[in-house]
Simulated scan of single mutants.
Amino acid sequence: MASKVEEIRNLSAEDRAQKLKDLRDEQFNLRFQHSTGQLENTARMRQVRREIAQVKTVMNEQVEAAE
C-alpha cells in the first residue's frame, strides 16, 4: 500500500487532480450500477473510496507543505 501512495506523491498536481476526477467518475458509475442491481464486484466500491482518500490526503499534504 505504501508503494501506491508513493506513486500518487510522484504524480504532478495536474495528474493528481485528473486521477481524483477519474476516481470520482468511477465511484459515480459504481453507485449507479449498485442501485440498479448490475454491480458484480461490490468490493470495488470500497477500493475506489479508499483510493480517493489517498489522493486527497496527498493533495492536502502538498498544500500544507507549501504553506
Results as ranks from 00 to 15, higher is better:
22 D>M: 07
49 R>M: 07
45 M>Q: 13
15 D>A: 14
34 H>G: 05
8 I>G: 08
16 R>K: 14
42 T>M: 11
46 R>I: 05
65 A>L: 10
15 D>G: 08
53 A>I: 08
33 Q>Y: 02
9 R>A: 04
36 T>Q: 13
29 N>I: 01
15 D>N: 13
20 L>M: 05
57 T>Y: 11
13 A>W: 03
30 L>C: 03
20 L>R: 11
21 K>H: 10
2 A>R: 11
35 S>I: 01
62 Q>M: 10
64 E>R: 14
67 E>R: 12
10 N>K: 14
12 S>E: 05
20 L>F: 05
38 Q>F: 05
45 M>F: 06
44 R>G: 01
23 L>H: 09
59 M>L: 08
56 K>D: 13
50 R>D: 15
18 Q>L: 12
46 R>G: 08
48 V>S: 06
28 F>D: 10
59 M>P: 02
34 H>P: 00
28 F>G: 03
51 E>H: 11
12 S>Y: 03
55 V>R: 01
22 D>S: 12
9 R>Y: 00
10 N>P: 02
52 I>H: 09
57 T>N: 12
61 E>N: 07
39 L>T: 04
11 L>R: 07
28 F>W: 10
64 E>P: 00
41 N>F: 09
41 N>K: 13
10 N>T: 05
18 Q>C: 00
25 D>I: 00
36 T>S: 12
41 N>D: 15
32 F>W: 07
10 N>Q: 15
24 R>L: 13
52 I>T: 08
15 D>E: 15
26 E>W: 04
58 V>C: 08
53 A>N: 14
53 A>Y: 07
57 T>F: 11
12 S>C: 05
17 A>D: 11
4 K>H: 09
32 F>G: 00
28 F>I: 04
15 D>K: 14
18 Q>R: 12
16 R>I: 02
55 V>Q: 03
12 S>K: 09
17 A>K: 13
63 V>S: 05
18 Q>T: 08
59 M>V: 05
39 L>S: 04
62 Q>N: 08
18 Q>F: 03
24 R>C: 01
44 R>N: 05
1 M>V: 06
1 M>T: 08
40 E>R: 11
55 V>W: 00
17 A>P: 02
22 D>L: 07
4 K>E: 15
38 Q>E: 14
58 V>W: 05
6 E>H: 06
24 R>N: 14
22 D>K: 10
13 A>P: 00
3 S>Y: 09
23 L>T: 07
42 T>Q: 11
11 L>N: 03
43 A>Q: 13
61 E>S: 09
33 Q>D: 12
3 S>Q: 14
39 L>C: 06
3 S>L: 14
39 L>D: 02
1 M>N: 10
1 M>W: 04
51 E>A: 15
44 R>S: 04
50 R>E: 15
64 E>W: 02
41 N>C: 01
21 K>M: 08
27 Q>M: 15
7 E>A: 15
51 E>D: 15
36 T>N: 06
20 L>Q: 06
33 Q>L: 14
47 Q>N: 13
19 K>Y: 02
14 E>I: 05
37 G>R: 09
49 R>F: 03
46 R>E: 14
